[in-house]
């Protein structure tokens, strides 16, 4: 695994820009795999002819695949010390085969809930600088006692 984000929880701080995760370009084959794996068999994501028949240029990626990329990112950020206790995404622009998504994040808040350290992150998925395909947030709860 490309360990992009081995950041100890104790080193997180407010407004910290987290290292980003650059995903390889989305492929048509990946959309077919994701359709089968997720059970979302809408032809809009896998059949160019169908997509064109409803006025699109061609297939578009499942929004949930993009959220899957952000999920990979937050799970890597959680590392070995924290769990992802909440994770949310709002869908933006469409993603097409060939688009390469970059996930990035910022620490918005560090708080303590029931004696546990909690980090609230703001997340972004972009297909090019400034071209957002999704924005979201995640809550990481640290399981290691603060010393």
């Amino acid at each position: 695994m490309k360990a992009i984000t081995k950041i100890p929880f104790s080193e997180l701080h407010k407004e910290m820009q987290l290292p980003s995760l650059a995903k390889p370009p989305v492929t048509h084959e990946q959309l077919v795999q994701y359709a089968q794996a997720s059970g979302d068999l809408n032809l809009l994501h896998t059949d160019d002819a169908f997509a064109k028949s409803i006025g699109m240029d061609g297939v578009i990626a499942h929004g949930m695949l993009i959220m899957g990329f952000l999920g990979q990112y937050v799970q890597e950020l959680a590392g070995t010390e924290a769990i992802v206790s909440k994770f949310n995404m709002r869908f933006g622009a469409m993603t097409k085969p060939g688009d390469a998504i970059t996930c990035s994040g910022v620490v918005k808040q560090l708080i303590e809930i029931d004696g546990k350290r909690v980090a609230e992150l703001e997340l972004n998925a972009e297909k090019a600088p400034g071209e957002r395909v999704g924005t979201g947030s995640a809550t990481l709860t640290c399981k290691i006692e603060n010393d």
Partner: peptide, 16 residues
């Protein structure tokens, strides 16, 4: 098997 296929489709190789 379903979890494995899902992780592979996303390209998420986390050993977790």
């Amino acid at each position: 098997e379903r979890v494995t296929r899902f992780a592979q489709a996303v390209g998420d190789e986390n050993p977790l």
